[in-house]
Design a protein around this nucleic acid. Structure first.
Ligand SMILES: [Zn+2]
Ligand SMILES: [Zn+2]
Ligand SMILES: [Zn+2]
Ligand SMILES: [Zn+2]
Lengths: 398, 398
DNA sequence: AGCGCACATGCTGTTCCT
DNA sequence: AAGGAACAGCATGTGCGC
C-alpha cells in the first residue's frame, strides 16, 4: 500500500478541522464535532429537516448550518456511543489477556482497558494511514470469552455484559471499520441495474473484505481454498447487509460517500431491491429479505456488525468437514454475543430470543441474494462482468 | 379578477406563518421575520453562505436554517428600511391632500401621515387580495410636490427629504409592488436564449405593467394610442432594469421566484446579457448597459423604482406633441426626486449630480436593448414569437 | 488521552414599551 | 399599528477537571 505523507496531519473526519483533533467516540474528530455528537448522538437524524435533501457538504464553515447532515455524517463515519453497559466485577480483575502471542497480566482494571483501547486506536490509526494491513489483529481468544460467559449466575446480573463481551463487541466494530470509507463511488446517480451500481469497485471491496476476515484468527488460519469458499458468498452477504443498513425506506434509496475524503454524501434513489416482475412468483423476494434485515438491525451499527460476523462464520455446505467444527464454534460464539447484546439492549430475555430466531432465519436466506445476483450477471454476459465479480460468482466464459 | 376567500387569512410573505402578522418594513410579515429583518437587513446577503446554492425553500419550519435565503427572500418581497430621513417642519402642517377627488385637511402631521399610510396599506392589501385593480391610485398631485420643492431654503435643510418627497417615494414603491410575485416562471433552468426565458409570461407581465402605469394619473389620462406608444418600449426597459437589479455578477445569473406562492427561489445561471460575438463591434454592448445600471442602482430598490418611473416618463419620439409637455413634467419631477434622494442618501450635492448624469445617460441608452431584443426575435421568426411580444415589438407576419 | 460538564457566545422569537 | 428594547430559549464551541 502507498504511504501518503499528507495523511499524517490529523484532521477531523467530520468537518476537516485540524485544531483539537483526537479520537472521540471511536473516530478521529475535532472537539466541536465531539460535543456535537455527544449532544445529538441519540437523536434520530431521519426526523430532522434538511433544506438540501440530505445533500449538504459538511466542512468547518458549514458544519453549523445543517444539523441533520452533520449528524448523519458522524454516524456514517462510524461515531457511536458504547450504549451497552459494561459490568465491573471483582472476579474480572485478574484476567489474562492474549494479544498476538504476547501475554499481559493486568491487575488494574482501568489500566487494562486503557491499554486495550490504546492498542485498538493505534492499530486503527495505522490502518487508516495505510501503513499496515489488518493482519495485526487483536481478537480475544475463544477460551476467555467462554470463561466469562459462565461467570454470570445471579439473575439480576444476567442482562449485563461483562468486560470480555464488551471487548468482543469492540473487536467486531474495529474490524468492520476497514469499510468506513468504502464508498469511493463517484457520481453514481440514477442507476437502473445491480451490477453497475453495487459492484463498480469490486476489487477494492474484495481487498477490504479479506482485510476484515483476517481480523479473525480462525478465518486466517484456514487454507486458502477454504477461505475462498467462504469469501465468495460472503462478499455478497456483507454487501447486502451493509446496503440494507444504509437503505432509507421512506426515500427508497440510500446515502453514500461520493469521494475519498468523504466530505460529500450523495443520495442514491433507485429500485435496487425490488424483485423484478419477471421472476417466478414462488421465489423468495430479495427486497423482502433486505427490508426485514433493515428492520431487525434497528439502525444499530452494533447489530449490523454482529450480523456480518455471524454471516461470515455461518455453516456452509462447500466447507471442508475438517474445518466445520472450528467455524461452527465461532458461529455459536457470535450468535451468543448477539443474543447477549439484545438481552442487554432490550432488557428482556424473551424478546431477544424471538429476535435472534428471526435473524438466524434471515441469515440463512442470504444465499438467495447471491443466486439472484449471479442470475442477473449471467444475463449481462461474462464479457461484460468485472473480473473480480466473475471470480466471486464463479462465472465461466463458455 | 377572481376573489379567493383563502387569501383573507393574513400570512407572512416570508415564511407563511399566520400568527402575529402585520405590516413590517412595508410588507406583511410575522413578528419573527420582522425582527429578523430588523437585525439582518443591513447585512449583505451575498457575503453569507448557503449550503444549497441559494435554493432554500423558506417556511415556518425551515426559516431558521438558512439565514442567507431568508434575508434574500425578505429583500426580494420588498422589505426595506426607510433610510431616508423624513423632515418634519411646521409649514408642512397645513397641507391639503387630494386623494381620489376627496380633499382631506389634516392639521395634525402625525395623524396625516398615519392616514396616508393606512390608505396605502389598505390599498396594497386589496390589490394583493385580488379585489381591485391598481386603478385606485393615490398618487399625490403635481402641484403639491412643486410647492414642497420650494420650501427648503436653508442650506443645512436642503439634503433632508420633506414629507411630500417621502410620500412620492412611497407611492412609487407601492406602485411597483404589483411586480412582487411577477416571476411565476416554473422550472426555468439552463436557458440559452432570450425569448424563452425572459418572456415566457409576456401577457401576465403586460397586464402588470399596465397596472403599474395606471397608478400615475398622467399616464392614465393619455389616449390609448399614446399609452401604447409608451408601453411598447417601456415593457422592455422595465424588464431590463428589474433583471439588472436581480443580476448577480459574481454568479453570472439571478434569482427569481419559482411559483405563485413565492416560497421557492431559484437561481438562473446564464449568459443573458453577453452581447453575441456576431454583432457589429461598434454597437453599444447590451451587457455593459445592464452592468452599469446594476452598478448605479447600488442594490437599492428605491433607486431601481425611481429609475423605472423616470424611464416611463422619459421623452419619446413617437409621442404626440400635445402630450410631450405633461409627460416631460413628470420626467422632470421624478428625475428631481431621484436627485433629492441621492443627495439625501450620500449627503453630497456633487456626488448626486454626477450620479444622476450617468443615470440619465443610461436611461437614454435603454432603446438599444429594445432594438437588440427585436432583432433577436426577428431571427426567431414571427410564427415562433408570443402574440404579446409580437405586439410589443411590432412584428408583422409578412 | 477521552469524556462529561460548565460557561460564553451567537442566533431566534416573544413580550413589553413607546 | 409599527418599530425598538429586552428577556428567555436554544445551538454551538472552548476550557477545565477527572
Ligand atoms: Zn469536526
Ligand atoms: Zn443538510
Ligand atoms: Zn415570517
Ligand atoms: Zn439557503
Amino acid at each position: 500500500m502507498e504511504v501518503d505523507q499528507r495523511k499524517y496531519i490529523k484532521k477531523c473526519k467530520v468537518c476537516g478541522d485540524e485544531r483539537m483533533v483526537g479520537f472521540n467516540f471511536n473516530v478521529l474528530t475535532c472537539a466541536s464535532c465531539r460535543i456535537f455528537f455527544h449532544r445529538n448522538g441519540e437523536r434520530n437524524h431521519n426526523q430532522m429537516t434538511c433544506l438540501n435533501n440530505g445533500n449538504c457538504l459538511i466542512n468547518v464553515h458549514t458544519r453549523k448550518s445543517c444539523t441533520q447532515c452533520r449528524l448523519r455524517k458522524c454516524l456514517f463515519i462510524g461515531m457511536r456511543r458504547m450504549t451497552f453497559r459494561c459490568k465491573r466485577k471483582k472476579q474480572d480483575n485478574d484476567l489474562k489477556i492474549t494479544i498476538q502471542n504476547q501475554t499481559v497480566l493486568q491487575k488494574n482494571e482501568s489500566n487494562c482497558e486503557r491499554f486495550i483501547i490504546a492498542r485498538i486506536r493505534h492499530w486503527l490509526q495505522m490502518v487508516s494511514d495505510g501503513l499496515i494491513s489488518t493482519s495485526e489483529s487483536i481478537e480475544p481468544t475463544i477460551s476467555q470469552v467462554n470463561v466469562t460467559k459462565d461467570i454470570s449466575n445471579n439473575d439480576n446480573d444476567k442482562l449485563e455484559l461483562n468486560r470480555w463481551e464488551c471487548y468482543h463487541l469492540s473487536h467486531v466494530q474495529k474490524s468492520i471499520s476497514v469499510f468506513i470509507d468504502e464508498n469511493r463511488v463517484q457520481t453514481v446517480v440514477n442507476l437502473n441495474d445491480y451490477a453497475k451500481h453495487t459492484f463498480n469497485i469490486p476489487a477494492l471491496y474484495a481487498t477490504r473484505i479479506v482485510q476484515f476476515c483476517n481480523n479473525f484468527q480462525t478465518f486466517k488460519e484456514l487454507p486458502k481454498k477454504q477461505q475462498l469458499n467462504i469469501l465468495k458468498p460472503f462478499y455478497v452477504e456483507l454487501l447486502a447487509i451493509r446496503i440494507a443498513f444504509l437503505f432509507d425506506q421512506k426515500r427508497n434509496g440510500f446515502f453514500m460517500m461520493e469521494n475519498e475524503s468523504g466530505n460529500r454524501v450523495i443520495f442514491i434513489q433507485n429500485s435496487l431491491f425490488n424483485t423484478p416482475r419477471t421472476s417466478r412468483p414462488n421465489v423468495i423476494s430479495i427486497s423482502n429479505i433486505i427490508r426485514q434485515i433493515k428492520f431487525e438491525m434497528e439502525d444499530d451499527p452494533i447489530i449490523r456488525d454482529l450480523l456480518i460476523t455471524i454471516s461470515l462464520f455461518k455453516p456452509r455446505d462447500n466447507l471442508h468437514n475438517r474445518y466445520r467444527e472450528v467455524i461452527g464454534y465461532k458461529y455459536y460464539q457470535y450468535t451468543n454475543l448477539l443474543r447477549r447484546y439484545l438481552e442487554n439492549k432490550h432488557q428482556s430475555l424473551m424478546k431477544a430470543k424471538e429476535k435472534l430466531t428471526r435473524i438466524i432465519h434471515l441469515i440463512n436466506d442470504l444465499p438467495y441474494i447471491y443466486h439472484d445476483y449471479r442470475r442477473r450477471l449471467l444475463e449481462v454476459g461474462y464479457e461484460n462482468v468485472n473480473q473480480v465479480l466473475a471470480e466471486v460468482f464463479e462465472l465461466t466464459n463458455q
